[in-house]
Design a protein around this nucleic acid. Structure first.
Length: 204
DNA sequence: TGCCAGGCCCTCTTTAGGGCCTT
């Protein structure tokens, strides 16, 4: 059973957009939150077994030279599987990270018990006025502390965690008592036009 | 052979198309 008060916020850097087209993970970064506080983190480059494109080198700053000496995906993902344990999971555009997590873990016959929640879907509902819902733009829009590093796994996971906690805090300030992971999932699945009704009911 | 993501969400919608978001 997933731990009620423990959640892992994760982010993958990959060779492309689709594991179904042969793309692999090249870096995983994650932070573990317990009761809204960061208690642990995980970051590891991994060697996908082939050269990454110059686009990916440029986009992430992760070079083929850096990956040359990195441990294999199998090795890293086995370790990461232990890190996430049975926790629930959060990612920005979670469907993307879930596809890669599922694909990489399937290769080593590993699974996980937690469920995903998506900070992108929640942000589209709770921060509807933002000019963009890209992670970097939301961080800027909400004035969230960052070190200026983007498109690296741990930095993006840390920013996603801060964005998530900011959205939880905003809900608390609006009168919703202790919004749970499950409540945030419900928000993400509620039609944008009906979110305010959901929030109003949740304040009663 | 040639092509190639996938899910969400809006709208000039549902017998569809296209933008957003992730690398």
């Amino acid at each position: 059973m997933p731990q009620a008060n423990s959640v892992v916020v994760l982010d993958f850097e990959t060779t492309g957009l689709s594991p179904n087209l042969g793309d692999r993970a090249i870096e995983i970064g994650a932070v573990k939150l317990v009761d809204g506080e960061v208690v642990d983190s995980f970051q590891q480059l991994m060697n996908p077994g082939f050269r990454v494109s110059s686009f990916i080198e440029s986009y992430t700053g992760i070079t083929n030279n850096m990956l040359r000496t990195a441990p294999s995906c199998d090795e890293v993902m086995a370790s990461f599987s232990e890190f996430i344990a049975d926790d629930n999971l959060i990612a920005h555009n979670a469907s993307f990270d879930k596809r890669f997590l599922d694909a990489e873990l399937e290769r080593i016959n590993c699974g996980y018990a937690g469920e995903f929640a998506c900070s992108l879907l929640v942000a589209r509902r709770l921060i509807q006025e933002a000019p963009s819902h890209k992670l970097g733009e939301l961080v800027r829009y909400k004035n969230i502390d960052n070190d200026g590093v983007f498109h690296r796994a741990l930095a993006d996971a840390q920013m996603t965690a801060k964005l998530w906690l900011q959205m939880v805090e905003d809900l608390e300030l609006s009168g919703i008592v202790n919004p749970s992971f499950e409540f945030m999932q419900t928000v993400s699945k509620t039609a944008k036009g009906k979110v305010n009704l959901l929030l109003a009911k949740s304040r009663v």
